[in-house]
């Protein structure tokens, strides 16, 4: 049976070997991402990482998300917004994700279509047989 998979890392040094890089603070890693991010890389930010922060920090995070979107467009990387939930009660519903996408200036429908195309292209490369 064939299984498709993606490789995720929080370490930017692994960007040439993985499919998705998870980042917390875009501004602190921006310069390193400019050097190391290759075209087609997925850059993920998670809502769970900011949930327990203060509201000014969340507002700053939303602004950084907008900057990350611009960076992804310029460097042909895929912007990924996820819940980052490791427990069921930390999930984020689809409607809430769409609302956050609208706040950071992305039309949800086009985001999901683009993400779907990117996923198809990455998953086609990563298949393992078990």
């Amino acid at each position: 049976m064939d299984f498709q998979y993606l490789v995720v890392s929080a370490n930017i040094k692994d960007s040439s070997r993985v499919d998705i890089i998870t980042i917390d603070n875009f501004r602190t890693v921006k310069d390193r991402l400019k050097k190391e991010a290759k075209s087609g890389l997925g850059i993920e930010i998670t809502i769970d990482s900011v949930r327990n922060r203060s509201s000014p920090e969340i507002a700053s995070w939303l602004q950084q998300a907008k900057e990350l979107i611009k960076f992804c467009k310029m460097s042909r990387c895929q912007f990924i917004l996820s819940s980052g939930a490791e427990l069921p009660d930390r999930q984020v519903s689809g409607q809430s994700l769409d609302a956050v996408l609208r706040i950071i200036g992305i039309e949800p429908q086009s985001y999901w279509q683009e993400l779907g195309r990117w996923l198809d292209s990455r998953l086609a490369l990563r298949v393992t047989r078990c």
Partner: peptide, 11 residues
């Protein structure tokens, strides 16, 4: 929309 977004960021 803003209420749904606020729900995502609640703790």
């Amino acid at each position: 929309d803003s209420v749904l977004a606020a729900i995502a960021f609640c703790n």
